[in-house]
Amino acid sequence: MGAGPAGLLLGRLLHLAGIDSVIVEHRSRDYVQKRVRAGLLEQGTVELLREAGVAHRLDQLAAVHTGFELRFAEESVRIPFADLSGRSVWMYGQAEVVKDLIAAREGVAELHFDARDVVVDEAGGERPVLRYSLDGERVELRCDIVVGCDGYHGVTRSRMPGLRTYEHAYPFAWLGILVEAPPIAKELIYACHERGFSLYSMRSPTVSRLYLQVDPTDTLDQWPDDRVWAELHTRLGTDLGYGLNEGPILERGITSMRSFVAEPMSRGNVFLAGDAAHIVPPTAAKGLNLAVSDVRVLAEALADWFTTGDRKALDGYSERCLRRVWRAEEFSDWMTGLLHRFPDERNMQFRFREARLRYLAGSEAAMSSFSENYVGSAVA
Protein backbone atom coordinates (compact mmCIF):
# COMPACT_ATOMS: atom_id res chain seq x y z
CA MET A 1 0.00 0.00 0.00
CA GLY A 2 1.53 3.30 -1.15
CA ALA A 3 3.83 4.32 -4.02
CA GLY A 4 6.15 6.53 -2.04
CA PRO A 5 9.83 5.68 -1.49
CA ALA A 6 9.06 2.94 1.06
CA GLY A 7 6.49 1.05 -1.02
CA LEU A 8 8.36 1.41 -4.30
CA LEU A 9 11.73 0.39 -2.83
CA LEU A 10 10.19 -2.59 -1.04
CA GLY A 11 8.58 -3.67 -4.31
CA ARG A 12 11.95 -3.36 -6.05
CA LEU A 13 13.78 -5.42 -3.44
CA LEU A 14 11.10 -8.11 -3.50
CA HIS A 15 11.28 -8.26 -7.30
CA LEU A 16 15.06 -8.76 -7.12
CA ALA A 17 14.43 -11.59 -4.63
CA GLY A 18 11.95 -13.24 -7.02
CA ILE A 19 8.86 -12.36 -4.96
CA ASP A 20 5.76 -11.00 -6.73
CA SER A 21 4.04 -7.92 -5.38
CA VAL A 22 1.37 -5.41 -6.31
CA ILE A 23 1.75 -1.74 -5.38
CA VAL A 24 -1.50 0.20 -4.87
CA GLU A 25 -1.54 4.01 -4.60
CA HIS A 26 -4.65 6.18 -4.20
CA ARG A 27 -2.95 9.31 -5.60
CA SER A 28 -2.14 9.99 -9.25
CA ARG A 29 1.28 9.26 -10.70
CA ASP A 30 1.76 12.96 -11.42
CA TYR A 31 1.04 13.88 -7.79
CA VAL A 32 3.40 11.23 -6.42
CA GLN A 33 6.26 12.25 -8.69
CA LYS A 34 5.96 15.96 -7.90
CA ARG A 35 5.67 15.86 -4.11
CA VAL A 36 8.42 18.08 -2.68
CA ARG A 37 9.85 16.25 0.30
CA ALA A 38 13.19 15.53 1.95
CA GLY A 39 16.39 15.86 0.00
CA LEU A 40 19.02 14.45 2.36
CA LEU A 41 19.97 10.78 1.95
CA GLU A 42 22.12 8.99 4.50
CA GLN A 43 24.95 6.80 3.27
CA GLY A 44 23.07 3.62 4.16
CA THR A 45 20.12 4.79 2.04
CA VAL A 46 22.37 5.49 -0.95
CA GLU A 47 24.08 2.11 -0.60
CA LEU A 48 20.74 0.29 -0.64
CA LEU A 49 19.53 2.23 -3.69
CA ARG A 50 22.73 1.20 -5.44
CA GLU A 51 22.23 -2.44 -4.45
CA ALA A 52 18.71 -2.19 -5.88
CA GLY A 53 20.06 -0.89 -9.19
CA VAL A 54 18.19 2.43 -9.05
CA ALA A 55 21.00 4.88 -8.27
CA HIS A 56 22.21 5.71 -11.79
CA ARG A 57 20.82 9.26 -11.83
CA LEU A 58 21.59 9.74 -8.15
CA ASP A 59 25.29 9.05 -8.75
CA GLN A 60 25.29 11.48 -11.66
CA LEU A 61 23.30 14.33 -10.11
CA ALA A 62 23.52 14.18 -6.31
CA ALA A 63 25.91 16.36 -4.32
CA VAL A 64 27.89 14.62 -1.59
CA HIS A 65 28.06 16.57 1.68
CA THR A 66 30.70 15.96 4.34
CA GLY A 67 29.64 18.68 6.78
CA PHE A 68 27.30 21.62 7.35
CA GLU A 69 27.51 25.14 8.67
CA LEU A 70 25.97 26.05 12.03
CA ARG A 71 25.20 29.72 12.69
CA PHE A 72 24.24 31.21 16.06
CA ALA A 73 24.96 34.37 18.08
CA GLU A 74 26.70 35.99 15.08
CA GLU A 75 29.10 33.03 14.91
CA SER A 76 29.60 30.40 12.25
CA VAL A 77 31.01 26.91 12.83
CA ARG A 78 31.38 23.99 10.42
CA ILE A 79 30.38 20.54 11.69
CA PRO A 80 32.62 18.08 9.74
CA PHE A 81 30.42 15.04 10.31
CA ALA A 82 32.16 12.86 7.70
CA ASP A 83 35.56 13.30 9.34
CA LEU A 84 34.05 12.49 12.74
CA SER A 85 31.79 9.59 11.74
CA GLY A 86 33.32 8.19 8.55
CA ARG A 87 30.01 8.64 6.71
CA SER A 88 28.65 11.27 4.30
CA VAL A 89 25.18 12.32 3.14
CA TRP A 90 23.83 12.95 -0.37
CA MET A 91 21.52 15.76 -1.48
CA TYR A 92 18.97 14.24 -3.89
CA GLY A 93 15.26 15.04 -3.71
CA GLN A 94 12.71 12.44 -2.66
CA ALA A 95 10.74 13.16 -5.85
CA GLU A 96 13.79 12.07 -7.86
CA VAL A 97 14.09 8.85 -5.85
CA VAL A 98 10.42 8.14 -6.58
CA LYS A 99 10.89 8.77 -10.31
CA ASP A 100 13.84 6.37 -10.40
CA LEU A 101 11.89 3.64 -8.60
CA ILE A 102 8.80 4.04 -10.78
CA ALA A 103 10.95 3.82 -13.92
CA ALA A 104 12.52 0.59 -12.62
CA ARG A 105 9.10 -0.98 -11.97
CA GLU A 106 7.34 -0.01 -15.20
CA GLY A 107 6.76 -3.00 -17.43
CA VAL A 108 8.23 -5.28 -14.76
CA ALA A 109 5.60 -5.56 -12.02
CA GLU A 110 2.13 -4.26 -11.17
CA LEU A 111 1.82 -0.64 -10.06
CA HIS A 112 -1.66 0.90 -9.77
CA PHE A 113 -2.26 4.63 -9.30
CA ASP A 114 -5.62 6.33 -8.65
CA ALA A 115 -7.01 3.45 -6.59
CA ARG A 116 -10.28 4.35 -4.85
CA ASP A 117 -12.20 3.12 -1.78
CA VAL A 118 -9.25 1.14 -0.46
CA VAL A 119 -10.00 -1.27 2.40
CA VAL A 120 -7.74 -3.71 4.28
CA ASP A 121 -9.77 -6.54 5.85
CA GLU A 122 -8.82 -9.40 8.16
CA ALA A 123 -5.72 -7.48 9.18
CA GLY A 124 -5.05 -9.86 12.07
CA GLY A 125 -5.47 -13.02 10.03
CA GLU A 126 -3.15 -15.21 8.00
CA ARG A 127 -4.51 -14.06 4.62
CA PRO A 128 -5.36 -10.35 4.78
CA VAL A 129 -7.63 -9.03 2.02
CA LEU A 130 -7.09 -5.83 0.07
CA ARG A 131 -10.09 -4.32 -1.73
CA TYR A 132 -10.11 -1.25 -3.96
CA SER A 133 -11.63 0.24 -7.09
CA LEU A 134 -9.51 0.75 -10.20
CA ASP A 135 -10.89 2.33 -13.38
CA GLY A 136 -14.41 1.74 -12.10
CA GLU A 137 -13.85 -1.97 -11.42
CA ARG A 138 -13.80 -3.48 -7.93
CA VAL A 139 -10.61 -5.45 -7.20
CA GLU A 140 -10.07 -7.97 -4.39
CA LEU A 141 -6.66 -9.38 -3.53
CA ARG A 142 -6.24 -12.16 -0.97
CA CYS A 143 -2.66 -11.62 0.09
CA ASP A 144 0.10 -13.50 1.85
CA ILE A 145 1.32 -10.16 3.22
CA VAL A 146 0.03 -6.59 3.23
CA VAL A 147 2.53 -3.80 3.92
CA GLY A 148 1.19 -0.36 4.74
CA CYS A 149 3.57 2.20 3.23
CA ASP A 150 0.65 4.59 2.85
CA GLY A 151 1.77 7.32 5.21
CA TYR A 152 0.46 8.87 8.40
CA HIS A 153 -3.05 9.34 6.98
CA GLY A 154 -3.18 5.97 5.21
CA VAL A 155 -5.81 3.30 5.73
CA THR A 156 -3.59 0.38 6.75
CA ARG A 157 -2.72 1.40 10.30
CA SER A 158 -6.36 2.19 11.07
CA ARG A 159 -7.24 -1.44 10.32
CA MET A 160 -4.66 -2.88 12.73
CA PRO A 161 -6.16 -3.46 16.19
CA GLY A 162 -4.36 -2.91 19.46
CA LEU A 163 -1.54 -0.60 18.38
CA ARG A 164 -0.07 1.73 20.98
CA THR A 165 0.66 5.22 19.69
CA TYR A 166 2.87 8.05 20.93
CA GLU A 167 2.51 11.57 19.55
CA HIS A 168 3.80 15.08 20.19
CA ALA A 169 2.93 18.28 18.30
CA TYR A 170 5.48 21.08 18.29
CA PRO A 171 4.38 24.70 18.86
CA PHE A 172 5.80 25.87 15.52
CA ALA A 173 5.83 24.95 11.84
CA TRP A 174 8.17 25.28 8.85
CA LEU A 175 7.52 27.58 5.93
CA GLY A 176 9.42 26.07 3.00
CA ILE A 177 10.14 27.72 -0.34
CA LEU A 178 11.68 26.36 -3.53
CA VAL A 179 13.57 29.13 -5.32
CA GLU A 180 14.96 29.48 -8.80
CA ALA A 181 18.36 30.74 -7.67
CA PRO A 182 21.84 29.18 -7.40
CA PRO A 183 22.80 28.01 -3.90
CA ILE A 184 25.04 30.35 -1.91
CA ALA A 185 26.95 27.47 -0.31
CA LYS A 186 28.04 23.91 -1.08
CA GLU A 187 26.66 22.60 2.22
CA LEU A 188 23.56 23.13 4.35
CA ILE A 189 23.34 26.11 6.69
CA TYR A 190 21.44 25.65 9.98
CA ALA A 191 20.78 28.96 11.74
CA CYS A 192 19.54 29.47 15.29
CA HIS A 193 18.36 33.08 15.71
CA GLU A 194 16.46 34.90 18.43
CA ARG A 195 13.63 35.36 15.89
CA GLY A 196 13.52 31.63 15.16
CA PHE A 197 15.18 28.85 13.19
CA SER A 198 16.05 28.90 9.49
CA LEU A 199 17.67 26.41 7.12
CA TYR A 200 19.40 26.92 3.80
CA SER A 201 19.41 23.87 1.53
CA MET A 202 19.65 23.15 -2.18
CA ARG A 203 18.13 20.93 -4.83
CA SER A 204 20.35 21.53 -7.86
CA PRO A 205 22.99 24.00 -9.15
CA THR A 206 20.14 26.36 -10.08
CA VAL A 207 17.48 25.68 -7.41
CA SER A 208 17.64 26.41 -3.68
CA ARG A 209 15.37 25.21 -0.85
CA LEU A 210 14.92 27.40 2.23
CA TYR A 211 12.93 27.07 5.45
CA LEU A 212 11.72 29.43 8.18
CA GLN A 213 10.28 28.61 11.58
CA VAL A 214 6.77 30.13 11.74
CA ASP A 215 3.73 29.95 13.97
CA PRO A 216 1.68 26.80 13.30
CA THR A 217 -1.44 28.92 12.75
CA ASP A 218 0.21 31.07 10.05
CA THR A 219 -1.09 30.96 6.49
CA LEU A 220 0.77 31.53 3.23
CA ASP A 221 -1.11 34.80 2.75
CA GLN A 222 0.69 36.13 5.82
CA TRP A 223 4.05 35.50 4.18
CA PRO A 224 4.39 37.53 0.94
CA ASP A 225 7.72 37.37 -0.87
CA ASP A 226 9.13 40.54 0.70
CA ARG A 227 8.51 39.30 4.22
CA VAL A 228 9.99 35.88 3.47
CA TRP A 229 13.21 37.32 2.07
CA ALA A 230 13.57 39.91 4.83
CA GLU A 231 13.26 37.22 7.48
CA LEU A 232 15.69 34.90 5.71
CA HIS A 233 18.30 37.67 5.46
CA THR A 234 17.93 38.38 9.17
CA ARG A 235 17.99 34.82 10.47
CA LEU A 236 20.73 33.57 8.17
CA GLY A 237 22.94 36.47 9.20
CA THR A 238 23.51 37.84 5.74
CA ASP A 239 24.34 41.22 7.30
CA LEU A 240 27.55 39.55 8.51
CA GLY A 241 28.86 39.37 4.96
CA TYR A 242 27.02 36.28 3.65
CA GLY A 243 25.19 36.70 0.37
CA LEU A 244 21.72 35.35 -0.35
CA ASN A 245 20.61 34.77 -3.91
CA GLU A 246 16.99 35.79 -4.32
CA GLY A 247 14.89 34.57 -7.23
CA PRO A 248 11.39 33.52 -8.28
CA ILE A 249 9.66 31.36 -5.67
CA LEU A 250 8.55 28.23 -7.54
CA GLU A 251 6.72 26.51 -4.66
CA ARG A 252 5.87 27.26 -1.06
CA GLY A 253 4.11 25.50 1.76
CA ILE A 254 3.74 25.35 5.54
CA THR A 255 4.44 22.02 7.25
CA SER A 256 3.36 21.23 10.79
CA MET A 257 5.93 19.52 12.99
CA ARG A 258 5.21 16.46 15.07
CA SER A 259 6.65 13.22 16.39
CA PHE A 260 4.64 10.01 16.11
CA VAL A 261 5.30 6.31 16.68
CA ALA A 262 2.94 3.35 16.45
CA GLU A 263 4.01 0.04 17.94
CA PRO A 264 4.25 -2.77 17.23
CA MET A 265 4.78 -2.24 13.50
CA SER A 266 2.93 -5.44 12.61
CA ARG A 267 -0.22 -7.42 13.35
CA GLY A 268 -0.50 -10.92 11.93
CA ASN A 269 0.56 -10.66 8.29
CA VAL A 270 0.05 -6.90 8.03
CA PHE A 271 3.11 -4.69 8.45
CA LEU A 272 3.80 -0.95 8.59
CA ALA A 273 6.80 0.85 7.14
CA GLY A 274 7.85 4.48 6.90
CA ASP A 275 5.47 7.30 7.75
CA ALA A 276 2.61 4.87 8.36
CA ALA A 277 4.46 3.79 11.50
CA HIS A 278 6.48 6.84 12.53
CA ILE A 279 6.84 10.56 11.88
CA VAL A 280 9.81 12.70 12.91
CA PRO A 281 10.20 16.49 12.83
CA PRO A 282 12.19 17.35 9.69
CA THR A 283 15.09 19.06 11.48
CA ALA A 284 17.43 16.04 11.24
CA ALA A 285 16.04 14.74 7.91
CA LYS A 286 15.31 11.26 9.26
CA GLY A 287 11.90 10.50 7.72
CA LEU A 288 12.90 9.08 4.33
CA ASN A 289 15.98 7.40 5.76
CA LEU A 290 13.99 5.64 8.48
CA ALA A 291 11.54 4.40 5.83
CA VAL A 292 14.41 2.94 3.81
CA SER A 293 15.81 1.30 6.94
CA ASP A 294 12.41 -0.31 7.62
CA VAL A 295 12.23 -1.58 4.06
CA ARG A 296 15.70 -3.12 4.16
CA VAL A 297 14.81 -5.10 7.29
CA LEU A 298 11.38 -6.15 5.99
CA ALA A 299 12.62 -7.20 2.55
CA GLU A 300 15.25 -9.46 4.09
CA ALA A 301 12.71 -10.96 6.50
CA LEU A 302 10.17 -11.60 3.73
CA ALA A 303 12.83 -13.23 1.56
CA ASP A 304 13.69 -15.59 4.43
CA TRP A 305 10.05 -16.48 4.97
CA PHE A 306 9.16 -17.06 1.33
CA THR A 307 12.37 -19.03 0.73
CA THR A 308 12.61 -21.17 3.86
CA GLY A 309 9.30 -20.78 5.68
CA ASP A 310 11.17 -19.42 8.72
CA ARG A 311 9.26 -16.52 10.36
CA LYS A 312 11.88 -15.64 12.96
CA ALA A 313 13.14 -12.52 11.15
CA LEU A 314 9.61 -11.55 10.12
CA ASP A 315 8.31 -11.83 13.68
CA GLY A 316 11.27 -9.77 14.91
CA TYR A 317 10.76 -7.02 12.32
CA SER A 318 8.98 -4.57 14.60
CA GLU A 319 11.36 -4.88 17.53
CA ARG A 320 14.41 -4.53 15.30
CA CYS A 321 13.10 -1.45 13.48
CA LEU A 322 11.81 0.29 16.57
CA ARG A 323 15.28 0.42 18.13
CA ARG A 324 16.43 2.63 15.26
CA VAL A 325 13.12 4.51 15.15
CA TRP A 326 13.27 5.57 18.80
CA ARG A 327 16.95 6.56 18.48
CA ALA A 328 16.07 8.77 15.49
CA GLU A 329 12.97 10.17 17.24
CA GLU A 330 14.97 11.18 20.30
CA PHE A 331 17.76 12.77 18.27
CA SER A 332 15.30 14.63 16.02
CA ASP A 333 13.49 15.97 19.08
CA TRP A 334 16.80 17.02 20.68
CA MET A 335 18.04 18.74 17.53
CA THR A 336 14.69 20.48 17.08
CA GLY A 337 14.81 21.78 20.64
CA LEU A 338 18.41 22.91 20.19
CA LEU A 339 17.74 25.06 17.11
CA HIS A 340 14.20 26.46 17.51
CA ARG A 341 12.85 29.34 19.57
CA PHE A 342 9.84 28.22 21.61
CA PRO A 343 6.82 30.50 22.22
CA ASP A 344 6.95 32.57 25.43
CA GLU A 345 10.50 31.41 26.00
CA ARG A 346 12.35 33.24 28.75
CA ASN A 347 15.56 35.02 27.77
CA MET A 348 17.53 32.76 30.06
CA GLN A 349 16.31 29.70 28.13
CA PHE A 350 17.55 31.22 24.88
CA ARG A 351 20.97 31.85 26.48
CA PHE A 352 21.00 28.25 27.71
CA ARG A 353 20.54 27.24 24.07
CA GLU A 354 23.49 29.38 23.02
CA ALA A 355 25.60 27.69 25.69
CA ARG A 356 24.62 24.25 24.36
CA LEU A 357 25.48 25.32 20.82
CA ARG A 358 28.87 26.65 21.92
CA TYR A 359 29.57 23.36 23.70
CA LEU A 360 28.63 21.42 20.56
CA ALA A 361 30.80 23.67 18.41
CA GLY A 362 33.78 23.56 20.77
CA SER A 363 33.89 19.97 21.96
CA GLU A 364 35.16 17.23 19.65
CA ALA A 365 33.45 14.60 21.82
CA ALA A 366 30.09 16.40 21.58
CA MET A 367 30.54 16.99 17.86
CA SER A 368 31.43 13.31 17.29
CA SER A 369 28.33 12.11 19.13
CA PHE A 370 26.19 14.56 17.17
CA SER A 371 27.74 13.46 13.87
CA GLU A 372 27.14 9.77 14.58
CA ASN A 373 23.45 10.49 15.10
CA TYR A 374 23.16 12.93 12.20
CA VAL A 375 24.52 10.50 9.58
CA GLY A 376 22.40 7.64 10.92
CA SER A 377 25.10 5.33 12.23
CA ALA A 378 23.96 5.48 15.87
CA VAL A 379 21.50 2.75 16.84
CA ALA A 380 20.32 2.10 20.40
Rank of each mutant, 00 (worst) to 15 (best):
R27Q: 07
D83P: 04
E106L: 15
W229K: 02
P248W: 10
G107C: 05
V375L: 10
V325C: 03
V97R: 01
V22Q: 02
L134A: 12
V375T: 12
V97Y: 00
E106A: 15
V295M: 09
A173F: 04
E354P: 10
M91C: 08
V46K: 00
V139P: 01
M91T: 08
T234G: 15
V64W: 12
W326M: 03
L322R: 08
V118I: 11
V261T: 09
E263K: 11
R227Y: 11
F352G: 07
D30A: 04
L48P: 10
S256F: 13
Y92W: 12
E372H: 12
L220V: 08
D100V: 05
A104T: 07
D144M: 07
D117I: 04
A169N: 09
V36F: 11
A82P: 05
L360E: 14
T336I: 09
T217P: 04
V118W: 09
I145A: 13
A191D: 04
L8P: 03
E137R: 14
G148V: 08
V379M: 10
T308H: 10
S363A: 02
T234L: 11
H15W: 00
F81D: 02
L70D: 04
R323E: 14
R235L: 02
F352Q: 08
D215M: 08
L84H: 05
V325F: 03
R351V: 15
A361Q: 06
A303V: 07
P282T: 01
F352R: 09
A181M: 12
C192G: 11
P205I: 10
V36T: 13
E330H: 13
L141G: 07
V292K: 02
G124K: 06
L199N: 05
A3I: 04
L314T: 01
R12G: 00
L290Y: 14
E110I: 11
G176M: 02
F260Q: 01
D226L: 01
E69R: 15
D100F: 09
L240F: 08
D221I: 11
G247P: 09
V46P: 04
I249D: 00
G125I: 00
D344K: 12
T255H: 02
N289A: 08
E251S: 09
V139A: 06
W334G: 02
R57W: 05
R27P: 03
Q43I: 11
F271K: 04
G67I: 05
A230V: 06
L134S: 07
A173L: 04
F352V: 15
D315L: 09
A378P: 06
E354C: 02
R116V: 12
D239L: 13
A185P: 07
S293W: 10
L360I: 03
A63I: 12
R320F: 08
W305L: 01
W229S: 04
M265R: 02
G337T: 05
R252C: 12
A73E: 15
T234Q: 14
E251Y: 10
E319Q: 15
G125A: 13
A277M: 09
L244C: 07
S76M: 07
T238F: 03
P282E: 03
I145F: 15
G124M: 13
G124Q: 15
I19K: 05
Y190L: 06
L338R: 09
F72R: 04
F350V: 12
